[in-house]
Design a protein around this nucleic acid. Structure first.
Lengths: 198, 198
DNA sequence: CTTATTTTATGATTTTAGTCATAAAACCGA
DNA sequence: TCGGTTTTATGACTAAAATCATAAAATAAG
């Protein structure tokens, strides 16, 4: 996350996106740095028969879509506003200038990319070698650490729909629903009027 | 990749690892920056029943294992020498000093992490929503672009065993063997005395 | 407040990759 | 060069998640 003042100094503009509005699409060439002021953005892929895979969900103060920007490669996924959102948008050239002139920011970017790579490494191993229940639990535990789940008297409220969990773990909704039920039976989590707590 | 001269200037030492020797293990706290001089290193996870998932394979002049180094987190996977290898090893503190004093290197690190994140994004979507043949082909095409596959008169020689392809795509050997056979039938690749060409 | 849509839920069935068994070919080490 | 290991190969069978169908509950929209 880069300070708003610094972004503005380099000419960033604010832009609003309505719910379900597309910010960029798979295959586009990146031209901007995006940082969330408010709202929620998801990046995802759709395969040939319309099945979605969510690469990540991003919240306020987070940036997204930088890797292809640094590599001059096409976006590997779509970015869509999950709810009404406001973003800082900074042109690539100005973003690069900002980086050059502020080396401290480079370190922040490195840490941010490292964090995302770490998540992807963990989930890749999960998705390819573990059973549904294990996958779901790992995602939930990751979410508690890195997404903004709120804690109350029942524990952490897992603020994802079953469908979203499926799209993040490569499972179908029904499988997620069944996995969550089993995890509750085993005492790993609680379901209080359909909401999941851990 | 950081120039040898610069690494040496900051006190990097050369270290040799024999085939199958462990460089670091899942759960260890990172203390060094590693860069390959010669040989081949794989990073992988093993699940509870011994099944392997290969996070990545790295060759000469590439570095590996940096994300946890930047985050002060435990390694999420093991690093093992696939063949006899020689590495530059630089202590974390000296590596950080190198970065601070050479901002250009930060940009290189960013590009490198971005590249790896890009690969993981593509493969994550593949693994979770596509059929075996598609997964195998995507991995092969990625390998042509980023691993050191050699081109000869038959095309690119895919220098992976079926087992390695399986461990990289989350498939079993038999499934990979069958997928490759089908891909040959469809004309997507060639098998010339058991070696795969694309 | 009513209606439409989304989310959660559950049972029955099917498909597909995994598993198991076995073996030949290739490769490697002593 | 011999013997052991690894890699590729193939067929039969199984299991597990996907698919299909259907519906109730919850939430959002008008």
């Amino acid at each position: 996350m880069i300070a708003a003042s610094l972004l503005k100094k380099y000419g960033a503009s604010k832009k609003s996106f309505g719910k379900n509005e597309i910010i960029f699409e798979e295959g586009n060439l990146p031209a901007h740095y995006y940082q969330i002021i408010s709202g929620e953005i998801k990046m995802s892929n759709y395969n040939d028969d319309g099945r979605e895979f969510i690469q990540g969900i991003f919240y306020k103060e987070q940036s997204f879509g930088e890797p292809p920007l640094f590599l001059n490669q096409k976006y590997p996924a779509n970015a869509i506003a999950v709810e009404d959102s406001e973003l800082f948008v900074l042109s690539k050239s100005n973003f690069m200038k900002l980086l050059e002139e502020n080396p401290i920011i480079s370190i922040k970017i490195i840490e941010n990319l490292a964090q995302r790579l770490y998540y992807k490494s963990v989930m890749a191993a999960e998705i390819s070698t573990h059973e549904p229940e294990h996958r779901v639990l790992k995602l939930i535990d990751h979410g508690i650490a890195y997404f903004n789940f709120q804690k109350d008297k029942n524990g952490y409220l897992i603020n994802f729909t079953r469908q979203q969990i499926g799209d993040l773990t490569g499972l179908r909704v029904e499988t997620v629903i069944r996995a969550i039920k089993n995890l509750e039976k085993k005492g790993e989590l609680q379901i209080i009027n359909r909401k999941v707590y851990r």
